[in-house]
Simulated assay, not measured.
Amino acid sequence: MTPRLHPDFLTIPIAHRALHDVTEGRPENSRAAVCAAIDHGYGIEIDLQLTADGQAVVFHDYDLSRLTDAKGPLRQRTAAEAAGIRLKNGDGETIPRLSEILDLVRGAVPLLIEIKDQDGGMGPDVGPLEQATAQALAGYDGPVAVMSFNPYSVARLADLAPAVPRGLVTEGYDPADWPLPAETCARLRDIPDFDACKAAFVSHDKTDLARPRVQQLRADGVPVLCWTIRSPQEETAAREFADNVTFEGYLARHPS
């Protein structure tokens, strides 16, 4: 049986890459941003990448240069090396391991974990990051869910962590915006793998929420989250089509 999302994922707004604000010394996906989200009572979305020694670390990009003063692929660094790389504008913050973030959150708020595609083309060359994630989550006590753009990743998580709710990150897949073949974009656009990968929810691009396939899933009882909301006005519009929002750049409204 596919596990269902904890109800808190549908009621508590989710801070995109945690509640980051570099003007306050809180880079995205940092410990400080995670603690700020907890203090504000928000859910937390984080991203995972794989290190050279097979560890899951909390970082969005494949390359280090945007978010740190280091250069090159994060995949070529060990977890110990990553722990010594400082995040820009972070008051000494470095790249955390998933296990560190789990210890910080401790079930206080919902935690939504995105597994970044490691295949490079949304294909089947996955496994090590999913394995590291499943190992870190073993025994975690609190509302948690995992998701990925890559359906193979979601299917692998269904095997490795069957009790953890999992979902697909989805969007309109304009080939102009993706380094993927047009036929791959066309296939992913209609979310054909939802049942096969035993997904429980989707998190869909805010600009494409009215897509019939997305709204049919919602009508069938599938929770629809959305990304990335950046204003109260966008939030109001998105909530017509989605059950909850992933937000950044402002403070989303809490349920009354």
Results as ranks from 00 to 15, higher is better:
residue 249 G to F: 10
residue 143 P to N: 11
residue 204 H to R: 05
residue 206 K to S: 06
residue 127 G to N: 03
residue 116 K to H: 03
residue 11 T to I: 11
residue 75 R to A: 15
residue 90 G to S: 08
residue 107 G to R: 01
residue 172 G to Y: 06
residue 99 S to D: 02
residue 189 R to V: 14
residue 36 A to F: 13
residue 184 T to Q: 08
residue 80 A to C: 08
residue 159 D to F: 04
residue 220 D to Y: 09
residue 100 E to D: 07
residue 249 G to Y: 08
residue 59 F to K: 00
residue 170 T to I: 03
residue 124 P to I: 06
residue 84 G to F: 10
residue 109 V to R: 00
residue 25 G to Y: 12
residue 124 P to A: 05
residue 176 A to C: 00
residue 187 R to Q: 15
residue 112 L to S: 02
residue 111 L to V: 01
residue 230 R to H: 10
residue 51 T to F: 03
residue 1 M to E: 11
residue 85 I to K: 09
residue 214 V to R: 04
residue 115 I to P: 01
residue 241 F to G: 02
residue 135 Q to Y: 07
residue 52 A to E: 04
residue 8 D to M: 05
residue 112 L to T: 00
residue 226 C to L: 04
residue 112 L to Q: 02
residue 225 L to P: 05
residue 40 H to T: 12
residue 142 G to L: 09
residue 197 C to T: 14
residue 210 A to D: 10
residue 89 N to H: 15
residue 160 L to P: 00
residue 256 S to L: 14
residue 131 Q to V: 10
residue 79 A to V: 14
residue 229 I to W: 08
residue 217 L to R: 07
residue 42 Y to L: 05
residue 77 R to V: 14
residue 11 T to R: 14
residue 49 Q to N: 04
residue 56 A to Y: 02
residue 193 D to Y: 15
residue 236 T to S: 07
residue 3 P to V: 13
residue 248 E to D: 11
residue 245 V to P: 03
residue 117 D to Q: 02
residue 207 T to L: 06
residue 244 N to A: 11
residue 150 N to W: 12
residue 243 D to H: 11
residue 92 G to L: 09
residue 126 V to D: 01
residue 193 D to M: 15
residue 34 V to F: 12
residue 235 E to M: 09
residue 15 A to S: 06
residue 73 P to S: 11
residue 83 A to D: 12
residue 137 L to A: 10
residue 26 R to S: 14
residue 39 D to A: 13
residue 140 Y to K: 03
residue 160 L to A: 02
residue 31 R to S: 12
residue 171 E to R: 03
residue 50 L to R: 02
residue 202 V to M: 07
residue 80 A to P: 04
residue 233 Q to H: 08
residue 80 A to I: 14
residue 139 G to S: 06
